[in-house]
Design a protein around this nucleic acid. Structure first.
Lengths: 384, 384
DNA sequence: CGTTTCTCTGAATCACCTG
DNA sequence: CCAGGTGATTCAGAGAAAC
């Protein structure tokens, strides 16, 4: 049993392109498109377990949280200068960080992911704590600012970047990465871990009476890349430090659902107004390049069966070191080797694996083209 | 009020560039130009308090690799599987890190400084622990690799950078920063926190019998910049993870004293031989450090992301024979053609190649202008 | 001898489905 | 949970080899 059974089965799959099981709908009681007021930890506690696809967080790193940042015993932290108190202050920041990260992990679906942005003041605390909690870092991303503020006193290097951490919910957890969309966005080269983007200014920067509404408004381009890379249309994105709603505005543009948490009335108002006027992209503009992974699988046997390639055809590798003959059931034969296009390629080379679609070629009017080209033709033919 | 209020205060407190009092001579009993064998923590304990000007550390990264990894062509990646990079758990790694950092702090002079290099696997542990111990982070520096290893499976962003931390011995501690030397090195612009440097290969890479001597040899240019920025001629530089002696070789070139710790006999031997043949600074070495400014490459997707062109926008060729729609990831769609601005242009024309920047145009107030004009605008906008 | 093509490799937490 | 099968996936630079 073997090849034929499997090929036939795959063939069926190919003809009825695999449609991903529709995502479990977000629970109806999720406050989609809403900004929860009050403390973000309390607000997140009102959300159900396993309910959001992505958390994007831009937490404070200067502890400008007013009375909320107290010592565990309730006393207020003073600005102090001795060592003991500095440790105490880090401990307070760590406690706050641990609490919101624990809530983030709880509300995330198992195959969801977390993004956090920070600077050297806080990102090392955040990174260590999220690892302690069980998040698994997938990449750290450097946002390289094309127009940073110079170091006016000439005392250090110009602080020209911020750091983002991207983490799955655990070492073995699955996660979503739109590899092909990122590669397309970067002119057909893999997207790297360093992103060059301007800071948020000009027309994008929210102003009121000539003053910026929020001190650390992030550029929409940053969120655009984050959401395009790691969410799908219709996903739910939670931002626990919503500020003036960059995450919400970009989520709306990209057809993602969003939930925000923000304690400052002024920011909430500005954010709602801003998101109201953001325009969603239309359906066709939202389409992105799909990786072949998500395209329907095609069995090589289907091509034989459909007459796209005749039994008896000779296949070669690119350098014509090996050749093989196509058999009626879609298997290959080369000397004593028999099996799938992948297995025969693998064994002939003595390689650990082989993608037969790109390894094997056939002669066509003088030049040789890979089987993969034939597969594309076949896919077009069976489409619709 | 809180801890990081203080951090901000420290930022504004930034010391005026230190003009140094003549240095106390290094104690005569310091093992200058020597590599101490054995465990680095034990070795450091043999050094006196307050005796070195700079610690540069390249500790194990605790990579925690899974199985083998093959390139798409079937070849196997030569991974870092050495025993010295294996730790049972984060707790074990943290304990080790804390111990060597405590020793580093003890041997450093009060106005000395620490550099540590790492990747996302370990740097968040290291950063949090050194803050806990009382080190004060001055900058985090991103080494952007011009030629990183790609992500062969298309599962994440290309891991294209490593991170260095630069820290003084405490919040109030003085430190040395050669601001002008850095500015000169960077074409009269302030040196930024992101450094673009190639990885160590070619003639610089130490090899024996055709194999690399050390799996993670750092480029000399990196150490060159570190030592030039934060030490003076005659300073004592300690490297607790000496490896094949990049720190020693560059220190010698720059007229700095060095001390190393290394437990592997093979690395010690290679390092001594290498440093022996290192020549003190000549002018040509300096020239290789000059940042080569070249026009930055721009991906079409960046323009979409930055809002310079909206998804859904229609593009035309000059004679309006073809049109295409911009999609969210920076790809184009025209009938059944999908792909990059170059690829779609090429296929529609049936041409062997196509420069999408000059081929595609967009309508703007009646007349049409090429994408290339938009690219120029974008380049101006992101310019420093 | 110059130019083009090929080969090799680098701190990497690198798949997923079915039975 | 494990085993086995299928099949998706790479960029820059150096140096060697071929033309």
């Amino acid at each position: 049993m073997g090849a034929l059974t499997k090929i036939r089965k795959a063939d069926t799959l190919a003809k009825a392109p695999v449609v991903k099981a529709p995502k479990a709908k977000a629970p109806l009681d999720l406050p989609l498109g809403k900004i929860l007021s009050g403390d973000c930890i309390e607000a997140m506690r009102s959300l159900p377990d396993n309910s959001v696809d992505l958390v994007f967080a831009d937490p404070p790193y200067n502890l400008q949280l007013g009375g909320d940042l107290n010592r565990p015993d309730g006393s207020q932290v003073d600005a102090v200068t001795d060592e003991w108190d500095r440790f105490d202050s880090f401990a307070t920041y760590d406690k706050f960080t641990r609490e919101w990260l624990v809530e983030a992990k709880r509300v995330l679906k198992p195959d969801g992911a977390l993004w956090v942005i920070g600077s050297y003041h806080n990102i090392y605390r955040v990174g260590a704590i999220l690892q302690d909690i069980g998040f698994w870092i997938l990449n750290d991303i450097v946002w390289r600012k094309s127009n940073p503020m110079p170091n006016f006193r000439g005392t250090r290097f110009t602080n020209a970047h911020e750091t983002l951490l991207w983490a799955s919910t655990g070492e073995k957890a699955r996660y979503h990465f739109n590899y092909t969309a990122m590669k397309t966005l970067n002119d057909e080269l893999q997207m790297r871990s360093d992103w060059v983007l301007p800071i948020c200014n000009g027309g994008e920067r929210l102003k009121k009476d000539g003053h910026k509404v929020h001190p650390t408004q992030k550029p929409e381009a940053l969120l655009y890349r984050v959401l395009l890379a790691t969410t799908e249309k219709g996903d739910v994105v939670l931002d626990p430090f919503f500020g003036t709603g960059t995450t919400g505005a970009v989520a709306k543009r990209l057809g993602r659902n969003w939930i925000g948490c923000e304690r400052e009335d002024g920011y909430r108002g500005a954010a709602l107004e801003r998101i109201e006027s953001a325009l969603p992209l239309d359906e066709s503009a939202l389409k992105t390049m799909q990786s072949r992974k998500s395209a329907p699988r095609v069995a090589f046997g289907s091509l034989v069966e459909a007459g796209f390639i005749a039994p008896g055809t000779q296949l070669f590798d690119k350098k014509r070191r090996f050749s093989a003959t196509v058999r009626a059931d879609g298997s290959l034969e080369s000397g004593t080797e028999k099996g799938s296009i992948h297995g025969v390629g693998k064994n002939l080379q003595g390689a650990p694996s082989c993608n037969g679609w790109t390894y094997w070629h056939l002669e066509h009017e003088g030049d040789i083209k890979p089987l993969d080209a034939l597969r594309q033709t076949y896919l077009l033919a069976i489409e619709d």
